Simulated scan of single mutants.
Amino acid sequence: MTLRKPGLVAATAVVLALTATACGGGGDSGSDGEKINIGIKFDQPGLGLKTQDGEYTGFDVDVAKYVAKELGYDEKDIVWKEAPSGERENMIANGDVKFIVATYSITDERKERVDFAGPYFLAHQDFLVRADDDSTWNKDELNTKELKLCSVTGSTSAQNVKNKFAQEADLQEYGGYSECLTGLENEAVDALTTDDSILAGYAAQKEHQGKFKLAGLSLSDESYGIGLKKGDTELQKQINDALAKMVEDGSWEKAADKHFGPADYDYEPAPEITEKS
Rank of each mutant, 00 (worst) to 15 (best):
F99A: 01
V97W: 03
P119N: 11
F99E: 00
R130P: 10
D115E: 08
H124T: 02
R130D: 03
V61F: 14
V63A: 15
A83N: 08
F116I: 08
E89R: 07
A93T: 12
G54W: 04
R130I: 06
D96F: 07
H124P: 04
D60C: 09
G54R: 02
D115W: 02
T57S: 11
D77L: 06
D62S: 10
G72Q: 12
T57A: 11
G72M: 03
K111R: 14
T103E: 14
R88S: 12
I106E: 01
E55Y: 03
D77C: 11
R130C: 01
R110N: 12
Y120K: 00
A64H: 13
T107K: 00
A83T: 03
K111Y: 11
T57P: 03
A68K: 01
G86S: 13
P119L: 11
E112F: 07
F59D: 11
R130F: 06
A64F: 04
Y56M: 07
Y73I: 00
A68P: 13
E75K: 08
E82A: 07
I106M: 08
D62V: 03
Y73H: 15
V97S: 09
A117Y: 01
A102T: 03
E112G: 13
V114D: 08
F99Y: 08
E70Q: 15
K98A: 09
Y66Q: 11
S85D: 14
Y120T: 01
D115P: 02
H124Q: 06
A102R: 11
G118Q: 04
L71K: 12
L128V: 06
V67T: 07
D108C: 03
E75V: 04
K81W: 00
D96S: 10
G118E: 10
G86K: 10
D115I: 02
E70S: 14
D53Y: 00
L71D: 08
D62W: 06
G86E: 14
